[in-house]
């Protein structure tokens, strides 16, 4: 089973991101789960979203997990939220930031002993450039596709088009560019 935890702010699209990821993973024949911890969360409040992916039906409904991947889509949450909570020795971190990896890690003590498992990408800038708004969820998916090696980029893009089909073509194209750029730029 692969478990993923998203750190985000309400309005940045982590819940949609987690559900889109679930939707696409399901097309490969796997079983998925996507949920979030929010209730009366206001826009801007920190929230967490979760994915589980497995070959057999997922019957664990606990919120508690030891994530294989931690996806941080708000740059400030890397500093203020407990992003290493319940992690494992193999947990990989993908963090949205305009800083380079060395500088980011030097500023966050909890990441210093897991440097080789930290990946950075500027999802905010990419979404501003390509979609015209700060919606860092789509580029984060591109970065995740690269880091996890779970899909070929083309397969993912094709399926993402289906997930986004109710949106205008301009938005779909922007998302495709954002995912592709993050895939190429994550390091």
């Amino acid at each position: 089973m692969i478990e993923i935890r998203w750190h985000s702010r309400a309005g940045q699209g982590a819940v949609t991101g987690a559900k889109s990821l679930g939707d696409i993973v399901a097309t490969t024949g796997k079983e998925v789960q996507a949920f979030a911890l929010y209730g009366s969360a206001k826009r801007g409040a920190a929230l967490r979203a979760y994915n589980r992916i497995d070959d057999k039906p997922i019957i664990n409904h606990a919120k508690f997990m030891r994530p294989d991947y931690v996806l941080v889509i708000d740059p400030a949450l890397a500093y203020t939220d407990d992003i290493t909570m319940n992690d494992k020795e193999t947990t990989k971190y993908i963090i949205t930031t305009h800083l380079d990896k060395e500088q980011l890690v030097s500023e966050i003590p909890s990441l210093q002993d897991k440097k080789d498992r930290v990946y950075v990408v500027d999802c905010v800038q990419i979404s501003l450039d390509e979609i015209g708004r700060s919606i860092p969820n789509a580029p984060m998916l591109g970065a995740f596709v690269k880091v996890s090696g779970m899909f070929e980029l083309d397969y993912f893009l094709e399926n993402m088009k289906r997930v986004l089909k109710k949106f205008p073509q301009k938005i779909i194209d922007g998302n495709m560019r954002a995912i592709t750029r993050a895939y190429n730029e994550v390091k």
């Binding site: 987690a18 079983e31 998925v32 996507a34 949920f35 979030a36 209730g39 409904h61």
Partner: peptide, 12 residues
């Protein structure tokens, strides 16, 4: 069905 744990959890 359980609030949030089922109602807001997407699955196959």
């Amino acid at each position: 069905q359980d609030g949030f744990v089922t109602s807001h959890t997407a699955q196959n």
